[in-house]
Design a binder for these strands. Structure first.
Lengths: 336, 336
DNA sequence: ATAGAAAATGAAAGCGCTTACAGAAAACAG
DNA sequence: CTGTTTTCTGTAAGCGCTTTCATTTTCTAT
């Protein structure tokens, strides 16, 4: 069943059928109805390939995500897909992993599939070396690139970020206000947003008049068990702390495990703050105080920006959204 | 840059270039190299639309998944994508949600995109009413449909399942062996695999000579907090138990929360077993004994079956894999 | 060398759709 | 009822690729 068959059944030319399919206004109402009826009755679906060949667009957006088993990213992908769909676009998901080479490969793949734009979710897509970001700029020469939680100033690249600096600054400030003196900072990624978070931490420490102590800044693996071991090793080597702020909820869970294993009471002796307000944060006991970065808003904003870009409307290169601190059971004020 | 340009630069006809692209054997080595060089130098990529038009295939598999934020499904999607990719196929992911209408819509969408096959991951795709599964059979008339964790006997439908019945039977048996007498069963989904699990539970209970008590079978929401509330409500209404076996890890976490809130010691007073061996299971304290259903194997097996189907090799309609019980800290033998 | 078989190549006809252009029908004014 | 617009419809030329079929080149065995 192709457009020709439809045109025959409806007694018109294929051009007219095509016009009906594409909603062209140059079709009389009577003809339109006739064609629509035939299409419905015969269950006709236009061939996407032929359509793509003619229009050179597939109404499809490529989504790149480093790891869909990361809860934050999985959620983001979910919201992105839905938001795109409700705007009439389909999506093409790639789970790229962390390797630069793979990212390049998948990006090329998406370009070869002729997607209309690319959304990269996760700051993992920004390499520390500027030269390594070149593959993104290359893609942006062809189609718009949307970056979630990363920032790259370049033409045709549009970024949506949450204000990680401010969020960590505020959260750390709260720990200081609660009279914590040795605030441990756990992080996993050195990405753009990772740097922002760290900067927020440092600024808050300085602002509270606490000494800057690099031993309190600990890089951890993402996996809970490994991270727990890392913390325990640091403690065995002399590290002490009375609060922890983490760049990810999973690290906060690791910190909680460590505390439980070593008998430190939460929140009496140690306050802990996570990041992402993920499912993990309400699995623990006590439940985790954490920073909510509003994944859904992040995603819908990105898609709405993208729609504007595709529609030819100008959009700022960077859109920043704010976060909230969700207070639960792992933080408490201590009397000095 | 199209195939014509390449053919000109290489001094051959477009037919020859096409043969090189498609790895046809009827090209002399010298010509092949010449063409390959030109393609590389000019960065040429074949246009997928034109290619699809000619070949009527896109080398793309549609993946349907009800909710990519579910850790089990997210993992599955990840493994599926990778496995497909390494077999030269791209994938097209749809997060359909639970609504039958949406599932139908997305399935239609995938068909209209001319995917070469469809993988449905999660038993959510099998409705209790047989008529509601008709949309799957319709799709199977056109392209192969692979079902993960669901079973539907139909031509061109191929199912990969883990042996949920046996897994729950064994796990429940172990609780019996540990002298537990009131084994609570928590489940969320009434899907095919959900039914299998429940049947395994009932059979084990019967086999151990314990009385069948429907009050011990509790349907819970998936969300941890809601599930916890549900359990607490049942307990307030008179429910007692000394062991819990769950159809999902999240329900086990909920059970643990309930126990902690009501002061029941795990595993001294209550044993708990989860399902999926997800990240959740090592977040809790003590860590959760759980059933590992080997997502990765499930996915690679499915893809490998699919490749055979696409290659024209016969494949059984059902492939069943076995599970393992991973013993951690939430189970213990009690002396009677 | 040469007939015959095998391998390599090219010309051209689609694949199903969009769209520029031209022509027909309808609408309108006088 | 004619001449002029305006609206609608059809014809045909692509879009970039695959593939059949015919043709040319190369190889093999005599």
């Amino acid at each position: 069943m192709n457009i020709y068959d439809v045109s025959q059944k409806a007694g018109v030319s294929i051009a007219t059928v095509s016009r009906v399919i594409n909603g062209s206004s140059n079709v009389s109402e009577k003809t339109r109805q006739k064609v629509l009826t035939v299409m419905k009755e015969s269950g006709y679906t236009p061939n996407v390939f032929a359509r793509g060949l003619g229009l050179n667009t597939m109404q499809t957006i490529g989504i790149m995500c480093s790891d869909s088993s990361d809860p934050f990213l999985a959620n983001a992908v979910y919201y992105l897909e839905h938001s795109l769909r409700s705007n009439g676009y389909d999506s093409f998901l790639c789970c790229t992993g962390q390797e630069l080479q793979d990212k390049k490969k998948y990006l090329k793949l998406l370009l070869s599939k002729r997607v209309d734009a690319i959304i990269m979710v996760g700051s993992q897509y920004l390499e520390t070396s500027k030269k390594d970001n070149h593959y993104i700029l290359d893609a942006a020469k062809t189609i718009p690139v949307m970056l979630i939680n990363g920032y790259l100033a370049a033409p045709n690249v549009f970024c949506t970020l949450c204000d990680d600096y401010q969020a960590v600054y505020d959260a750390t400030g709260r720990l200081c206000f609660d009279n914590r003196k040795q605030i441990l900072y756990l992080y996993n990624s050195r990405s753009y947003s990772g740097q922002q978070k760290l900067a927020g931490y440092k600024a808050a420490i300085a602002n509270a008049g606490l000494p800057a102590d690099d031993r309190l800044i600990l890089h951890c693996p993402k996996q809970i068990q490994e991270a727990t071991a890392q913390i325990s090793a640091a403690v065995a080597a002399g590290l002490t702390f009375d609060a922890v702020i983490c760049a990810e909820d999973s690290l906060a869970v690791a910190a909680m495990k460590h505390c439980r294993q070593t008998g430190k009471q939460i929140p009496e002796e140690v306050s802990i703050i996570g990041y992402n307000n993920s499912e993990l944060s309400i699995c623990c006991e006590p439940e985790l105080t954490t920073i909510d970065n509003h994944v859904e808003t992040l995603c819908t904003t990105t898609v709405s920006n993208l729609m504007q870009v595709l529609g030819g409307t100008a959009v700022p290169g960077r859109t920043t959204l704010s976060n909230d601190l969700v207070i639960r059971g792992t933080t408490r004020n201590v009397q000095k």
